[in-house]
Amino acid sequence: MKLSPLKVALGALAFFSITTVALYFGIEKMNLGPKMGGDFTLSGKMGAVSLHDFKGKGVILYFGYTRCPDVCPVSLSRLRGMLKSLPEKASEKIVPLFVSVDYRSDTPAKVDEYAKFFMETAVGLTGTKEQINHAVSLYGTGYQFEETPKSAIGYTVQHGDRFYFINPRGKLVSTLPTTSPTSELKSAIESLL
């Protein structure tokens, strides 16, 4: 079978559009794929930390970076508010896990301090580019460095703005945008208990 250039172009176009649409909706309205989630290893301030180290506790995972001036603090403050409203016994069973994707500037100590500023029970992690890419791809999200030569900030990092709810057995059970209604986020948190 011979492919005319037109067919190739049409095929490429179709592939491109489908991928774009899939990517767009995939990120916007994420349905949990059977393979989404899983264990990863990153660096904490005391050394290597894996998701499985938190077995027995529910984990609320969030990807961000410490230089993030607006979105991350708002999301983390929101999470703090919701965890505060849980009975003390219940909130002890949940670990907010803040993973910085900014391997250029963030250190494990800095990320951990940042996370604990919002919630004492939180743990902050980061890692090498490869480790971060692995974790991010497991959860079907991404990030992108963007140079901002006109701004004193130097660069920013685009990142997803979602919470991932991982049950005490390490299984990803749901994910929601951080801007979801409080009732939805609360029931996702309660599902981990």
Partner: peptide, 20 residues
């Protein structure tokens, strides 16, 4: 602060993006 700038957040394709 070393610099003070005007910025805006935009929500594009499920990603948060900050622009000056």
């Amino acid at each position: 602060a070393r610099a003070v700038e005007l910025h805006e957040h935009r929500h594009e394709n499920g990603m948060m993006k900050m622009v000056q």
